[in-house]
Design a binder for these strands. Sequence first.
DNA 1: GCATATTATGGTATCGTTACCATATACGCA
DNA 2: TGCGTATATGGTAACGATACCATAATATGC
Lengths: 338, 338
Amino acid sequence: MATIRDVAKKAGVAPITVSRVINNSGYFSDATRASVEAAIAELGYVPNRLARGLRQKRTHTLALVLTDITNPFFTTVARGVEDIANEAGYTVTFCNSDESLEKEQKYLDLLVQLQVDGILLVPTAGTPENIRFLQKNDTPVVILDRHVADAQADIVRCDSEAGAYQLVQLLLELGHRRIAMLGGPEGISTAADRLAGYRRAMAEAGLAPASTLVQSGSFTQLSGYQMAKKVLSATPQPTAFLAANNFIAIGAVKALQESGLSVPDDIALVGFDDLPPTLMMFPFLTVAAQPACEMAQQATKLLLSRLAGEGPAQYQEIILPTELILRQSSGQPIPLSR
Amino acid sequence: MATIRDVAKKAGVAPITVSRVINNSGYFSDATRASVEAAIAELGYVPNRLARGLRQKRTHTLALVLTDITNPFFTTVARGVEDIANEAGYTVTFCNSDESLEKEQKYLDLLVQLQVDGILLVPTAGTPENIRFLQKNDTPVVILDRHVADAQADIVRCDSEAGAYQLVQLLLELGHRRIAMLGGPEGISTAADRLAGYRRAMAEAGLAPASTLVQSGSFTQLSGYQMAKKVLSATPQPTAFLAANNFIAIGAVKALQESGLSVPDDIALVGFDDLPPTLMMFPFLTVAAQPACEMAQQATKLLLSRLAGEGPAQYQEIILPTELILRQSSGQPIPLSR
DNA sequence: GCATATTATGGTATCGTTACCATATACGCA
DNA sequence: TGCGTATATGGTAACGATACCATAATATGC
């Protein structure tokens, strides 16, 4: 493999001059450019980014660490990050922590080793240790989607509490009183916020949901299925479900189908996070959709501004609203008798 | 940020000794190990992979270049690659070419710059130029999912031709005669193979499908929708559709719904590539499923064996069978009258 | 008891690039 | 004419790690 020195020799110039032509920096004549470019083409020279990164102490690489790459919500986030990063001349590395703190730690360590310039992190845990680790290693980080207690860092997320509140309000307006919460993992802020929004709406309506109606599990289809089954065995049965994310909603639909219950005729269902039309042959879920792409883009822009040494001195907390999308699954107003 | 030299100074040894402890190579005493590890912990030292890679000429990094990260088929492939690679101590970088040859080229160039040790490539084009580029730059490559004419390289893919043949056979056995093909891009081998399988099955049944029944488009929901609409306007209408991939099938379902036609009662539908249950609230498509994970794992193992300098001298071509999964969308045998 | 392995450690050069500083010519303007 | 500035190019060192070779102490074999 040809090096910059080989190119220099062939073009009859010094390596540093080749470097200038490649990076279009400093001064060089048109004649020099031509002979250098000819030499590069002839040798099939490709610059070595390891060497460049080592010398420059910058790799023009960002990383996105997320918790579930199979979830379309995060696929959309990934897309948003990549778009903005590429525009600015950065490459993005994607890592999947699988909701495991250990894996997250392993990846962050790797990313520091790889000298990425900055990291976008969807944290698995509510504790700030991993954030501190990055800061100790001079790696700027922007937290995405979830908050972390005591973390001194920039953060871009959605208002999950308000989103859940709106969804429950909708159900209340439709006449529902026994509303079940199919919640996410207890340690995760989005899950906690959605639960809080649910409780606030219920409390304001003067309702104290039975403990059997308030479940917590994981952000998976299986967990949604299991929570729905559990809630359905309670008496009296709920008339509506709030699913804390899209996968939980899918699991709940499965459970309801199995029990011979129809959505929304027997049970109303509302959820969090939209599913892209590409993947839904029958889009019918009423949801509080988070602006995934927008969120990702803002976070990336914030990170890039940090890398450029710009932006406000204090850490930013950007909170975006969710959007209520009405479809069939929330159903019609129900008769009082039920 | 601490360097290996800082650690060496603190531990009272030479940098090379620290290197030995970190990599567990060569000889060193237990006492040395202890003092080095203490120094590493105290300083929060993290090795610099750029420097290591530059010196070793190996980065322990693989790359997977695929054509559509939003397609669950490729998400599964990504998972399979990562699992095997991680086990072997490799990191994987994912790149999304978006079915664009130009983007693919750009990514391959970047990956060579980044000195990745090997590449798994789902090629967008049927031409071998990009493969040659990698080979010129000493980057081993395994082609995945699609074949490339004249490419001198290892390849792992599925038998799309046989899969399509089976699907059409199924439809023929159910009594269908006017079977429409909603095909993929003409330049892509999987699309061509599926079309060939369709034609072979039809020909063996003594059928010559009207040209209006044989469409080609792209592997997207929109294209599936459009092709289905076009085919539906033909007279006489087909009684069954073969969709060349999962997204095309979803688009076709949309078009049929809009036209007030039900699947499978009015039109039978079979497709290629399964959709994960996580994403399908109502799994009902009969498909020829490609063993995505298995394929990815075999390809990765092959690549790793090349990196280790093992394996047979000739290029391998591994072809895996598809699996026919029967669900509702293919419907029941139809009366002869139709 | 001496030759030869084995174990333990270090010095120096090097990977391929660019930062920094130096040098040299050409050009514009007082 | 002279001086400052813009243009053009190069030499040397350095980024942080490890390959390679060297050295020395201890262990082992006959």
